[in-house]
Design a protein around this nucleic acid. Structure first.
Lengths: 218, 218
DNA sequence: ATAAAATTTTACCATATGGTCAAACTTTAC
DNA sequence: GTAAAGTTTGACCATATGGTAAAATTTTAT
C-alpha cells in the first residue's frame, strides 16, 4: 500500500473534492478573475499565463500551483460561465404570457450582455474558434433549446404568437443581445461619444422590444 | 552615390507601386487565401506564419518574402474584406421602397454570411479583440452609418416605416446575419444533423424577413 | 512552540515562433 | 545564350511561452 506523499498541490486537493483552504479559495478566485479579463480580451491562444499572473499579482508558477495548465483555467471559466449564461433560457415559462415571457427573456439576456461583457466575449471567442472545448456542454444546450422550442411551438399552435421557427428566434435573440457585448468596439465608434442622458442599453432594449413584440404579435 | 543593390523583394516592389510579376500576383493570392483560412479559424495571435505557409504550400521564408510580417498579411486581408463587407450598406437607396430596401439589405448581408463565413469570422475576431487594427476604417463606417441613418429617419418622418432607432436597427441586422457565420459551431449543434431539403440559410432568411417586415411595418 | 501541511519563489527546460540572411536556383528581358 | 532580376531554400537567431523541480517560506493545527 503506497501513500501519496509527493508534492502537495491545490490541484490534487481540488480534484479530490477535499475541503479547500482559505488561501486556495481566495487565490483561485483571484486567478479566475484575472484570467477572465485576459482571455476575454485576447482569446485563448492570444493569452499567456504570465499575463494572467501579472494581472492577478502572482508569479507564473504560483498560478500553475492552483491550476495545472492554462487550459484548466479556461475550462473552469467556461464552466462557470455556461451556468449563468443559460439561466434566462431555463427561465422561460410555458404557463406565462407568451409575449411577456419572450420580452423578459430578451431583457435578461441584454442585461447579461451589459453586466457581464467579458463573459460574453469569452463565450464568443470560444464559439468563433469552433467551440473546441465545449462540445459536450453545447449538447446540453441543444437539449435545452429543444425543450424550449416545444414551448414556443405550443404558443404558436394556440395562436398566441405569430408562426415562426423557434430556433431561429432564439438565434436572433442571442445574436442581437450578445452583439452589444461582443461588438462593443464597433458599436462605440458608430454611436460616437456618449451624450449624457443617453444609455446605449436603454436604447437597445427599447429597439429590441419593439422589434420582437411587433414582429411576433399575432 | 550608393545604389540599392541589396535583396530584391516582392515587398519593396509592391510598396513602390511598380508593376507586379505574374508569380508575385499568384503567390500573394495563394498566401492571402491560406491566411484567411488560418486567421479566421484561430484569430490573429492564434495563427502562425508556419500554418499559413503549410496551407499555402510554401516555406515560411517564402511567405515572408511576399509579406514583410504576419501583421502585413492580416492587414491586407482586413482591407480587402471591408470593401466587400460594406457594399450592401452602401447600396441602400433613399428612393427605393423602404421596406424592400431593408429586406434586400438583410438578404444581401445574409448571403455574405453564407458565402463568406471566413471573412465574417475574421472581422468578428478583429472586433472582439477591440478592433486594434481597424480604428481608421471603423470611422469610415461611422460616417456611412450616419448617412444611411438619415435615410431611415427620412422614411420614418414620411411615415413609411415604424419609428425606431436606425443605428440599433443596423446593429440588429448585422448581429442576426453575421451570427450565422460567426456562431456556426453553436448553430450546427443546436440544429442537429441537417435533414435534407432543409436549408439553414433559407430558414434564417424566412425568419428574419418576417421579423423585420412585421416589426417595422407602419 | 513546533511539526506538518500548504504556499511561494527561484532557477530552469524544451519547444514554438516571428523573423533574418546569404546562398542557390529560376525566370525574364534582350 | 546570357546577364540581370526575381524567387526559393536551409540554416539560423532571439525571444516568448507553457510547464517543472526543488528549495524556501508561510500558515495551520496541536
Amino acid at each position: 500500500m503506497t501513500v501519496q506523499k509527493s508534492a502537495p498541490s491545490a490541484v490534487s486537493r481540488s480534484a479530490a473534492t477535499r475541503k479547500r483552504t482559505r488561501i486556495q479559495q481566495e487565490k483561485e478566485q483571484l486567478i479566475l478573475e484575472a484570467a477572465l479579463d485576459v482571455f476575454s480580451r485576447h482569446g485563448f491562444r492570444g493569452s499567456t499565463i504570465d499575463q494572467i499572473a501579472v494581472q492577478a499579482g502572482l508569479s507564473k508558477p504560483n498560478v500553475l500551483y492552483y491550476f495545472r495548465t492554462k487550459e484548466a483555467i479556461h475550462r473552469r471559466l467556461i464552466d462557470r460561465l455556461l451556468d449563468n449564461w443559460l439561466e434566462p433560457l431555463r427561465g422561460i415559462n410555458q404557463d406565462g404570457d407568451p409575449l411577456s415571457e419572450i420580452q423578459s427573456y430578451i431583457r435578461r439576456k441584454l442585461e447579461l450582455a451589459r453586466d457581464f461583457p467579458r463573459e460574453s466575449r469569452l463565450f464568443a471567442n470560444e464559439i468563433l474558434q469552433g467551440a473546441p472545448h465545449i462540445q459536450e456542454e453545447l449538447h446540453d444546450l441543444r437539449d435545452l433549446v429543444d425543450r424550449k422550442s416545444k414551448i414556443i411551438n405550443g404558443w404558436i399552435e394556440d395562436e398566441k404568437i405569430a408562426k415562426c421557427d423557434p430556433k431561429h428566434l432564439f438565434f436572433s435573440i442571442w445574436a442581437t443581445t450578445q452583439h452589444y457585448a461582443d461588438f462593443d468596439a464597433q458599436i462605440r465608434v458608430v454611436l460616437g461619444p456618449k451624450e449624457d442622458g443617453n444609455d446605449r442599453f436603454e436604447d437597445a432594449a427599447r429597439f429590441l422590444d419593439q422589434l420582437y413584440v411587433d414582429g411576433l404579435r399575432k
